[in-house]
């Protein structure tokens, strides 16, 4: 078995375990999916923190450059110099492009675990339909894995964010 296959097997065993903790399969489904959402949140937060920490200097530099050109372009416009405004605005746009795509690339740090989790669920549960307690228009009486995972992830992310802020503010107060 190759390293990659071995790793996948290990991850699969790790992620499926909470699904099997309760005797009741429905309860197991909810618990396992919630823990998966929690892992996705934590892992994303950690890698995002690494990205920001590592690129802090570069982000600050490009953001300052962008803001500076922006201020100057607005000054040119206020002074009624349209030609200078357009030329400086183009420089500001270029600086923005760099910052924008850098931040986009860095933001993937927080979202990659979500896509990986969905990928794992796709392999595990794509043929299973989960019964809903009510009939929804368009969806019907059953839903797929994404129906449960995405709202749970968003919820976990919000709660996690609140906890993080609470802990940080306590820590800073001291």
């Amino acid at each position: 078995m190759g390293f990659f296959a071995w790793l996948m097997e290990l991850v699969d065993a790790f992620l499926i375990t909470p699904y099997r903790w309760p005797q009741d399969p429905v309860l197991g489904w909810w618990l396992g999916t919630f823990i998966l959402a929690l892992w996705s949140t934590i892992l994303g937060e950690i890698t995002l923190a690494i990205a920001f920490r590592a690129n802090r200097f570069h982000v600050t530099k490009t953001t300052n450059e962008m803001a500076e050109y922006h201020d100057r372009s607005m000054n040119a416009l206020k002074a009624g110099n349209k030609g200078a405004y357009k030329a400086i605005n183009k420089l500001a746009n270029e600086a923005f492009g760099k910052t924008f795509f850098l931040q986009i690339a860095m933001a993937s740090a927080s979202l990659w675990p979500v896509a990986c989790a969905l990928g794992w669920m796709q392999a595990r549960f794509s043929n299973i339909r989960f019964p809903l307690p009510f009939n929804l228009p368009v969806l019907g009486e059953t839903a797929g894995y994404a129906f449960i995972f995405i709202p749970l992830y968003i919820l976990t992310r919000i709660v996690f964010g609140k906890f993080k802020r609470m802990i940080i503010s306590k820590f800073v107060d001291r």
């Binding site: 690339a105 990986c116 990928g119």
Partner: peptide, 18 residues
């Protein structure tokens, strides 16, 4: 779409951005 693949790509983009 193949979700796992998008996940691997996002991870790669993050590394590239560093």
């Amino acid at each position: 779409v193949q979700w796992g693949f998008i996940g691997a790509e996002l991870l790669g983009i993050f590394v590239g951005s560093m």
